[in-house]
Simulated assay, not measured.
Amino acid sequence: MGLAEQQEQLGVVVRRFAEIAPQGWARLVGSWEATPDGSGGVTLNWITTAVVHGGDRWLYGQVGYDEPLYDAVVALNELSAEGGPEHRWTTFELLVDPDGTIKVDFGYDAPKRSQGILDEQSHGRFERYLDTWVAEHGAVPASPAPGA
């Protein structure tokens, strides 16, 4: 398996994340940490959130656990390991916008959240993500008038 298969699997992850997102989402934010479980598999620690157009304000919250999304991310991790253990990512960051724009970042350092390290990178930025979003995008745009 190669890069094409990994890209295809990334597409599976993105599509599933969008399928389970709340209606009106403006951005999906995912952060996964992968830790080998000793039996050749991997255990994930994840944060999956969404910014949503809430009518008169932006809303932000956790997207519920979804086994198909979890399994798709595990499969992506396993594909990355096929090139050797040094190619297996330990952290995976994903931003998805409704227009199809995605931003992906894979990391290879020891994951933090899984080890109880809740610093700015591993946890804090997610607690303040809505503030960051509003600062970058401004107030929620008005909803179109019915029939417009």
Rank of each mutant, 00 (worst) to 15 (best):
A139Q: 11
V52P: 01
E82V: 07
L10I: 10
G2Y: 12
G116C: 10
T49V: 04
F17K: 01
G41M: 10
P144A: 07
K103N: 12
F126R: 05
A139R: 08
L95A: 07
A34W: 02
R27G: 10
E127L: 15
T49Q: 05
D105H: 14
Q115N: 11
Q23W: 09
Q7I: 04
E5R: 13
F126T: 00
G124P: 09
E33G: 08
A75R: 13
L118A: 14
R16C: 03
V52F: 01
A75D: 14
W25G: 09
Y60K: 06
N45W: 14
N45P: 03
A81E: 00
L94H: 04
G116T: 07
S143F: 05
A110D: 13
E136M: 14
G61S: 04
G54P: 03
E8M: 09
P146C: 01
Q23D: 13
T35D: 10
M1Y: 10
V74Y: 02
F17T: 01
L59S: 03
E120I: 10
S39A: 15
E136A: 15
N77F: 00
A50C: 10
G107D: 05
L79N: 04
T91G: 11
T35N: 08
D109P: 05
L3N: 07
V134K: 01
D131Y: 11
L59F: 02
V63R: 03
P22Y: 04
A139N: 08
Q115V: 05
D119A: 11
T35H: 09
Q115D: 13
Q115H: 14
R15G: 01
P85A: 09
H123L: 03
L28A: 10
L76T: 00
Y65E: 07
H53A: 12
D66M: 09
A110V: 12
E8T: 11
L118H: 14
V134I: 14
A81I: 04
A142S: 11
P111Q: 06
P98K: 06
G64H: 12
E67H: 10
M1G: 15
W133L: 03
E67C: 09
D99F: 12
G24L: 04
R113E: 06
R125H: 15
A26K: 10
A50H: 06
V104I: 14
A34G: 06
E5A: 15
P98I: 00
Q23M: 10
L79F: 12
V51C: 09
V52I: 14
F17N: 00
V140E: 04
R125E: 15
D119S: 11
P111T: 04
G64N: 11
G116M: 06
E33P: 08
D37A: 08
D105T: 13
D105Y: 15
L79E: 05
V140Q: 00
G30H: 00
G55D: 04
L44W: 05
R113I: 08
Q23K: 13
P98A: 02
N45R: 11
G41R: 07
V29C: 05
N77S: 11
V12L: 05
D71H: 06
P68T: 04
Y108G: 13
V140Y: 00
L130H: 06
Q23T: 13
K112T: 02
V73N: 00
V14P: 00
Q115I: 01
V104H: 05
W58H: 00
R16M: 03
G54N: 03
P111D: 02
I47L: 14
V140S: 01
P85Y: 07
H53W: 08
R15P: 03
E93H: 13
V74T: 04
A18D: 01
I20D: 02
V63M: 05
A110T: 14
W46F: 15
